[in-house]
């Protein structure tokens, strides 16, 4: 039973981290119609930025702040300006291929330019553990859960309670009416990209101690984020949290009780099961198709 509790807790923590990458992914899709296949690499890059920062002698928290700033600049502004904006109107397949190309390019760039080896990465919450009713709990799991939970809830509040957040939602729902109402659509879309950049940086901070900093760490993270997003409901922000936690918990349990070899396949099976029964995801609402 204690084993089970431990697996459950670390699964929830890992799932909350997946949820953040998933959330950024759905936000981009809603606001700009961009399916970002490089989302996993967007997590990998800040991890390496922090690694470089620390190797230059900065403490982890300072390198994290630098990484967030760089992310907003590169993964937010530059990505939007030089890749997403010029491709407006050239169809989903082109965007998909471009982000796939970006994913290959970024991975190989880091592999060739920095290192092909996995690098250990410190947890910002330390390595200590404590015992609660016989269950061994690590501070980094609890910290990740709290941090990720705060991020998701805070983002939800921002989107629902502030004027800017509501304007962003309006843009996601209907760009034309939003523009007609005097909302600065371009700025709102930029905010979405900036929020995604912050989300991937936090994801990198929390996930890299487990995944290790490696050029291809994004493959798995990106895929889990997609699946979490769709399982929860592609057009619902809370869905990403639910989907992420489901994926995190189930793969932890399957890895321990069924077979560790197929742990990474759990998300796919869950995804296929969910879309067979509920095509719009667990919390999603049906979308109309446009001719």
């Amino acid at each position: 039973m204690t084993d089970f509790m431990q697996l459950l807790l670390s699964g929830v923590a890992m799932g909350a981290i997946y949820a953040m990458a998933a959330l950024g992914f759905t936000l981009l899709w809603q606001a700009a119609g961009t399916i970002n296949f490089a989302q996993g690499e967007f997590v990998m890059l800040p991890a390496f930025a922090m690694l470089i920062g620390m190797s230059m002698g900065l403490p982890l928290w300072a390198s994290f702040i630098v990484a967030v700033a760089l992310s907003i600049l590169v993964l937010g502004a530059a990505f939007k300006k030089w890749i997403v904006d010029p491709m407006r109107g050239s169809g989903v397949v082109s965007v998909v291929v471009a982000t796939l190309g970006l994913s290959i390019g970024l991975k190989s760039f880091v592999k060739a330019g920095y290192s092909a080896e996995p690098h250990p990465f410190p947890s910002i919450f330390g390595d200590e553990v404590f015992k609660l009713a016989g269950v061994t709990i690590s501070y980094s799991d609890v910290g990740a859960l709290v941090f990720a939970g705060l991020m998701v809830v805070g983002l939800q509040m921002f989107l629902n309670k502030t004027i800017t957040g509501r304007a962003m939602q309006a843009v996601a729902q209907n760009t034309f009416s939003a523009e007609a109402l005097g909302i600065n659509v371009k700025r709102m879309i930029f905010y979405t990209f900036a929020i995604n950049a912050i989300l991937v940086s936090v994801t990198a901070l929390l996930i890299t101690p487990t995944y290790l900093a490696k050029f291809d760490m994004g493959d798995n993270i990106g895929l889990k984020a997609f699946f979490a997003a769709i399982i929860g409901g592609f057009n619902n922000s809370r869905g990403a949290l639910l989907g992420g936690i489901l994926v995190g918990v189930l793969e932890n349990l399957a890895g321990a009780y069924l077979t560790p070899a197929y742990k990474d396949g759990v998300a796919l099976v869950l995804f296929l099961a969910v879309i067979l029964v509920k095509p719009d995801g667990l919390l999603g609402t049906p979308q109309e198709r446009k001719v």
């Binding site: 491709m87 082109s94 291929v97 190309g101 390019g105 190989s108 592999k111």
Partner: peptide, 21 residues
């Protein structure tokens, strides 16, 4: 180009999708 080849390949694909989809 060695290891850089795939990086060049990936970024070229991005550029191509922008200018020659």
């Amino acid at each position: 180009l060695k290891d850089w080849y795939l990086a060049v390949f990936g970024f070229t694909a991005v550029a191509m999708m922008i200018w020659l989809p």
